[in-house]
Amino acid sequence: MTSLPAERGAKRLGLVIDLDTCVGCHACATNCKEWNTGGHSAPLTDVNAYQAEQRGVWFNRVHTFEAGQGADGRTVHFPKNCLHCEFPDCVTVCPTGASYKRAEDGIVLVDHDKCIGCKLCSWACAYGAREFDEDEGVMKKCTLCIDKIYNTRLPEADRVPACVATCPSRARHFGDLGDPHSAVSKLVAERGGFDLLPELGYQPTTKYLPPRPAARPLDNVGQRPRPANEDPAPAGFLRWMDRMLSR
């Protein structure tokens, strides 16, 4: 059913990505590729793998931006995958029903056996989160690791998306954003999490946490007392002469 589910649960699974902490290591991108190339969407094909103009299917891509100028400037690493939007146009445009949003958790998926490869969903996604497999002629996308997060064959602790489990700087968090009391929802509230392209109305489930302001001087740090005539050595260190310090 390409129409959005009429009846939905409160659960809204998604990610929270901390732009203050992401060091841009691409681990989330490659670990995602590694899990998913053998998973629900297998394979994540690469074209010209060892030739010029190499490209392939990636569910997660890490961009780098520079924002602001001068001392306030920041370099910001910016990982981006499907945001599992509340109003995903990628789903509603799909003519075949291959794209769908799950009622129970809000995950947006593609059924590759139904997809005709019309690419319309990729046109409808403002975020560039859809991935066309040129070799197979079908659309693929981030599954939120649906075959991992619910996989009862894996130990409980491993049931998180690959990109979250692997992130070395812990810049990625996974959870239920439909539940205001979940850890991720609290994080969003505390840190002022925001939506990408809010003006377009997709209402992404996945939120981003802003970088903290740059060049933050510490509070309460005094200035060094600067005598009018700064003691030149050796007089300046005479203050240590009488220190009685025990070894």
Binding site: A27, T166, P168
Partner: peptide, 25 residues
């Protein structure tokens, strides 16, 4: 090789894997 992931009990990486390590396949 189907998948390589970090060993959570390992002193060095405690379960995480970097971009290179995740491309071992």
């Amino acid at each position: 090789v189907r998948y390589i992931e970090g060993n959570r009990n390992h002193p060095t990486n405690k379960g995480v894997l970097c971009g290179k390590g995740s491309s071992g396949i």
